[in-house]
Design a protein around this nucleic acid. Structure first.
Lengths: 382, 382
DNA sequence: CAAACATATGAAAGCGTTTGCATTACAAAA
DNA sequence: TTTTGTAATGCAAACGCTTTCATATGTTTG
């Protein structure tokens, strides 16, 4: 606790407050070594004799020394922070992913700096600029639909980066995520296998949201591939109120509709709520599926059949990828993750006997998995 | 596009990649001024002749110069980043606040670095340390219930900081938020004013969550102040499934219970869901209130009477406070925000005529406000 | 017209680390 | 012994900016 201030060079700008912050020089002096050795004791302990290492550690402890991040970053060219740009944190899926990623990075001594673009490409570009300027060692983006200048900036900067939440193929920029088109294709097939032939699609705005757009495409493709008529696709703003309206529009315009594929759980909740209001029995008269498996999905009335994203795995892999790249190792640039399909109560056979050509079994409907959900799936309208 | 590399001092460490990053010196040379002037043109434009300012701006543009954050931070002792530590981003209220704060700070040229503590004090302490080391200009914490070492560290560092989500009085550390005790006191009074005399409390774990604890206290106090018997308080883990169990326990243990005050919307949703399962009519047989006003609150069946937090205002004020402190201005250290009470369908008069002493009018029940909610409140069991 | 002042600029000293290179200390080999 | 090699340390030069201080250039003013 007794550090004599002797010998300290006068500070040329007197900005330090009364409580002088300890610097590496203080630690070094106390441990009786040079700054270089003190630095090495911290960063490359294997280069320093155990006894010295020990002394430095003690000095750090006693002086409650905290390294100066900026100085360190300047000298070492490593900021130990990673940037993440999500469309919004208000979406549970992004918030949760951010949280998991942050935890994962923390464990490796990295920090997460989060920015949100509000689904606005120009804004996103500026966020990237700002992050680049702030200084980051790596960056995570959502999807691959970004302003060209953004890509250019990113490539020029030479910064390691990945995109997440959408598998974009081998030949794209590095990406880690599920194939939204395929996953929703499979989900839609589940409905078809149940016997549905008149399926509507309810989606939030797809402009600027490639994930949603891919899901819609998946549903369309699946329905087309099974020789069914083109589905009615209703696109609404991303609120529950709009989702309810969307459901109403869907059932009003399509008298014989028996299933609605919603591109996310929010839409599905809206649909469920509106069905309740309209007196439509789910799944008796109408089957509903969602996408995301939000916490409430299990507790709605009826509970929601939906697609669960492997968020934890995605975040973990994103972290691993980035750290590998930062450390100069290379890593598989494209990873395709698989979602799981969660069958709950909101889906069943259509009310009228199905047309004929369609197969009955619901067993082979894509990559099914029965989750640790209390309420079990049912395969027919009870 | 043509910059000659002549005159450049040889780099003593050859870490720069092929694509040489532009430095301030490059900009200065191109603009025909000294580095000092270039720097000023960027940071204190008013000190530089407009014409020169213009030339520097053009040089920056042409070279697509991006300032080096770490160097800047080292020289100026400003990182332009703010740390935020929340218990978890999985809670919508925190995620939303983080988002709003981040946006607000961005507008002022600051970045938000988010960390989460998972409601663990030790972990939180380490996050603070890590943020301090990384270098931040200010810090936001949730509530005032933190490890003593954390406070100590924070005070020693001299870093500007605020706590949010709970008003802790004038004499506390700087805080900006609502008074959770009072707000829930008022909410409970609303129930009492409706005629309820047997009110249960359902809460998620209060250990390490002073906001929840304060709300429970508010309910207890209110019930006590009205001469009613001590309420049954059920505390469960913070999941919907547990909330449902909690509701069941509450109604099983208290045959005459007519209202349940839930300390957050999650608990309330669970309660509502379980009531549906148990065939309990809400609000016919049981009234339910929540806290937070999550998006779905308006769309549950029945819609949920709850308390809405002024998140946007809170985040805005937090940002303002911090920036003021960083710039050396001082700011009111404690700000008490008011929540709004949102009356929806989940509350009504108790089924049996109330005991007598309790007043009938629901009009003077605290700081009521009728929100822009489509569905209007109703004051009695229809 | 000189004095007094304001305004713009540049030179250079840091900011607190890391790290290339040189040096020292010591053990193993000759 | 002396040589050679290796492991541990120190010196001092960056890292890329900001900012103090001094200087130069105008602009008023008495």
């Amino acid at each position: 606790m007794t550090q004599s201030q002797q010998g300290e060079p006068k500070r040329h700008r007197s900005r330090r407050s009364a409580k002088q912050k300890m610097r590496l020089a203080d630690v070094a002096r106390r441990a009786g070594v040079s700054e270089a050795t003190a630095s090495r004791a911290i960063n490359r302990p294997e280069l320093v004799r155990p006894e010295v290492r020990e002394r430095v550690a003690r000095a750090i402890q006693e002086l409650s020394y905290v390294a100066h991040g900026a100085a360190r970053a300047l000298a070492s060219d490593r900021t130990h922070s990673i940037g993440l740009i999500v469309p919004t944190l208000r979406t549970a899926v992004f918030a949760e992913s951010a949280e998991i990623l942050q935890q994962a990075l923390n464990r490796s001594g990295y920090h997460l700096i989060i920015a949100s673009s509000e689904y606005d490409k120009a804004r996103e570009y500026h966020e990237v600029r700002a992050l680049l300027q702030h200084g980051i060692d790596g960056m995570v983006l959502v999807g691959q639909d970004h302003a060209p200048e953004l890509w250019q900036l990113l490539e020029r900067s030479g910064l390691p980066f990945v995109t997440a939440f959408q598998y974009a193929g081998e030949s794209s920029y590095p990406c880690i995520g599920v194939d939204n088109r395929q996953e929703f294709y499979d989900a839609t097939r589940f409905l078809i296998n149940l016997g549905h032939t008149n399926i509507g699609v309810l989606t939030a705005e797809t402009a600027g949201n490639e994930r949603l757009a891919a899901r819609v495409a998946g549903a369309r493709d699946c329905i087309g591939d099974h020789g069914l008529p083109k589905p009615d696709v209703v696109e609404v703003p991303s609120t529950l109120t709009d989702a309810r309206q969307g459901l109403r529009r869907l059932v009003e315009r399509n008298a014989h509709i028996t299933a609605v594929a919603c591109t996310n759980d929010l839409m599905a909740f809206g649909a469920l709520a509106e069905c309740r209001t309209l007196g439509i029995d789910v799944p008796g008269q109408l089957s509903v599926i969602g996408f995301d498996d939000l916490d409430i999905a299990e507790h709605t009335q009826p509970s929601l059949t939906t697609v669960r994203l492997p968020l934890a795995e995605q975040s973990r892999r994103v972290g691993e990828y980035l750290l590998a790249r930062i450390e100069g190792r290379d890593a598989p640039s494209s990873t395709r993750l698989k979602a799981s399909f969660i069958v709950r109560e909101s889906t069943g056979r259509p009310p009228e006997p199905a047309r004929a050509t369609v197969q009955r079994s619901s067993a082979d409907a894509g990559p099914l998995q029965t989750p640790s959900s209390k309420r079990r799936a049912r395969s027919a309208a009870e």
